[in-house]
Simulated assay, not measured.
Amino acid sequence: MSFNFLHDFIDPMQSMSVATATLRLLSALILGGVIGWEREVNSRAAGLRTHMLISLASATFAIVAMELTSFEGDPDMAMRIDPLTLIEAVTSGVAFLAAGSIVINGANVRGVTTGASMWLCGAIGLCCGVGDVKLAGLLTLLAMLVLWLIQRLVTPVAIRVRGDDPEGRG
């Protein structure tokens, strides 16, 4: 009896192997880290670790939700498990963190892109957690296009239009 309890305690996963869960969590860490790296090298408040942790937590919540939906409980008890509630919870939780990265100082607003990238890492983590690593990879690629490529294309044009030069090249 005590052996069964110990086994259930250390190995509660019913529908997914530990290897599969590990791969999904590592995928979330890596893909969240790609976006976090870009934020880190551009000296943003939320960088590598933050984005990795958001993606990892989101993937974990997705895995736990999937495990709960496969949980075999008492057949006489009605189980009310709604995976969409998980998406709402992750979305609102990450949005709360993302809002904290936005700083408003008069007419100057900073951190909106970082907040959006944090929110996106939540979605990437959810994708990894449910096993849609292809979609998570595509999201990461598109995010990097927005964060890196668009920045390289738009900033020089914006400097010319505004007439200012932050690097003092006059």
Rank of each mutant, 00 (worst) to 15 (best):
I30G: 02
C121T: 06
S117M: 11
I150F: 15
L29D: 02
L120N: 07
M77T: 14
I102N: 05
L120Q: 07
V18C: 06
L53W: 01
W148M: 11
L153E: 03
L126C: 09
I159F: 14
A123F: 08
L149V: 15
T113L: 07
L141F: 15
L86K: 01
M66I: 08
R49W: 04
P156G: 05
L68F: 13
L142H: 03
D82V: 04
L23Q: 13
G111C: 09
S55N: 01
L53D: 01
T60K: 00
T91R: 03
A28C: 03
S101H: 04
L31R: 00
P156Y: 10
L139G: 14
S2C: 02
M118H: 04
G32S: 10
C128L: 01
W148H: 13
A158R: 11
D165H: 11
G129D: 00
S15K: 11
T50S: 09
D164V: 15
V90C: 08
A95I: 08
I10E: 07
P12F: 03
A19Y: 09
G137I: 00
D165M: 09
C121Q: 00
A19G: 10
G168M: 06
V34K: 01
L139T: 02
D76H: 10
R24Q: 14
R152N: 12
S2Y: 11
T22L: 11
R39T: 06
F61M: 13
A95K: 02
L53K: 01
I10V: 14
C121K: 00
M144T: 11
A107E: 12
G47W: 00
P83G: 08
E167R: 15
A78C: 01
G33V: 03
V34F: 14
G36P: 02
A107Q: 14
A19D: 11
E38K: 04
L26H: 07
E38R: 06
M1E: 13
V161N: 06
D11C: 08
R152G: 02
T140C: 05
L120H: 06
P83S: 04
M1T: 08
D8I: 01
R152E: 09
L31E: 01
A62S: 12
A19L: 15
G122T: 04
A65I: 12
E88Y: 12
A99C: 12
A99D: 08
M77R: 13
S58I: 00
K134F: 14
R39L: 04
T50F: 04
T91A: 15
T20S: 12
M118P: 11
V94S: 04
L6K: 09
W148C: 11
L23F: 11
E72R: 14
G111A: 07
E88I: 08
T114E: 05
W119G: 02
L149F: 13
V112S: 05
G170K: 12
T114V: 03
F9I: 05
G93M: 03
L135C: 10
R44D: 05
L145A: 13
F5E: 12
S92E: 11
I150R: 10
R80S: 08
V18G: 07
I104A: 12
R169N: 14
V41F: 09
A65L: 07
Q14K: 13
P12T: 03
V112R: 06
R152M: 10
I104V: 15
E88H: 10
E38I: 06
R44C: 00
V157G: 05
S70Y: 11
M144P: 00
N105T: 12
S27I: 00
G32A: 06
I54E: 03
S27W: 02
C128I: 01
